[in-house]
Lab assay of single mutants.
Amino acid sequence: TYTFKVDNKDQAKKAAKWAKKLGLSFQIEKHGDTFKITVQ
């Protein structure tokens, strides 16, 4: 499981695209202005 934080929606979208490309499941949680992405 890999967790990282991004500062904006664009970065969150890029991370989601990357995870989908690799066939991984992911969750994006919004914490105020940051997004926490968990990829597994």
Rank of each mutant, 00 (worst) to 15 (best):
T1L: 09
T1S: 13
T1R: 11
T1M: 11
T1V: 11
Y2N: 03
Y2K: 05
Y2I: 09
Y2W: 14
Y2M: 08
Y2Q: 03
T3E: 08
T3Y: 09
T3L: 04
T3G: 02
F4R: 01
F4N: 01
F4S: 01
F4G: 01
F4Q: 01
F4T: 02
K5W: 15
K5R: 09
K5T: 15
K5E: 15
K5H: 15
K5M: 15
K5I: 15
V6K: 01
V6F: 10
V6G: 02
V6R: 02
V6H: 02
D7M: 12
D7W: 13
D7Y: 14
D7A: 14
D7V: 10
D7R: 14
D7P: 09
D7I: 09
N8F: 04
N8E: 03
N8W: 03
N8S: 12
N8Q: 04
N8R: 06
K9P: 10
K9E: 13
K9R: 12
K9H: 09
K9T: 07
K9S: 08
K9W: 15
K9G: 06
D10V: 12
D10S: 14
D10G: 11
D10R: 14
Q11F: 06
Q11H: 08
Q11D: 11
Q11I: 07
Q11P: 01
Q11C: 15
Q11M: 11
A12T: 03
A12I: 07
A12F: 04
A12Y: 04
A12C: 15
A12Q: 02
A12V: 10
K13I: 12
K13D: 12
K13T: 08
K13L: 12
K13H: 08
K14E: 07
K14F: 08
K14N: 07
K14D: 05
K14V: 08
K14W: 11
K14Y: 09
K14Q: 09
A15S: 03
A15Q: 02
A15H: 04
A15I: 15
A16L: 10
A16K: 11
A16M: 12
A16W: 10
A16G: 06
A16R: 12
A16S: 06
A16T: 06
K17L: 12
K17Q: 12
K17I: 12
W18V: 04
W18E: 02
W18Q: 03
W18M: 05
W18N: 02
A19G: 02
A19F: 14
A19R: 01
A19P: 00
A19K: 00
A19N: 01
A19W: 03
K20I: 09
K20W: 08
K20L: 10
K20A: 10
K20P: 00
K20N: 06
K21F: 07
K21H: 08
K21E: 07
K21L: 08
K21D: 06
K21G: 08
L22V: 06
L22W: 09
L22T: 04
L22N: 10
L22G: 02
L22C: 15
G23D: 03
G23A: 03
G23V: 02
G23H: 06
G23M: 05
G23L: 03
G23C: 05
G23N: 07
L24H: 04
L24P: 00
L24Y: 10
L24C: 09
L24G: 01
L24V: 04
S25E: 09
S25V: 11
S25D: 09
S25P: 07
S25Y: 09
F26Y: 10
F26V: 12
F26P: 02
F26H: 03
F26E: 00
Q27L: 11
Q27K: 13
Q27D: 06
Q27S: 13
Q27N: 10
Q27H: 12
I28K: 03
I28Q: 02
I28A: 04
I28F: 04
I28M: 08
E29Q: 09
E29K: 08
E29R: 08
E29L: 06
E29N: 05
E29F: 07
E29M: 07
K30G: 05
K30D: 06
K30N: 06
K30H: 06
H31L: 13
H31C: 15
H31N: 11
H31W: 11
H31E: 15
H31T: 13
H31A: 11
G32R: 05
G32Q: 05
G32N: 07
G32P: 02
G32L: 05
D33E: 11
D33G: 09
D33S: 10
D33Q: 08
D33W: 05
D33T: 11
T34M: 13
T34L: 10
T34R: 11
T34W: 14
T34C: 14
T34H: 15
T34N: 09
T34K: 13
T34Q: 14
T34Y: 15
T34S: 13
F35Y: 14
F35C: 06
F35Q: 01
F35G: 00
F35E: 00
F35K: 00
F35I: 06
F35H: 02
K36S: 12
K36N: 08
K36G: 03
K36W: 15
K36V: 15
K36E: 12
K36F: 15
K36P: 00
K36D: 05
I37S: 00
I37G: 00
I37M: 04
I37V: 10
I37W: 01
I37R: 00
I37A: 02
T38R: 05
T38V: 07
V39P: 00
V39E: 00
V39Y: 05
V39M: 06
V39C: 05
V39N: 00
V39F: 08
V39I: 14
V39H: 01
Q40V: 11
Q40R: 13
Q40Y: 15
Q40P: 03
Q40K: 12
Q40G: 12
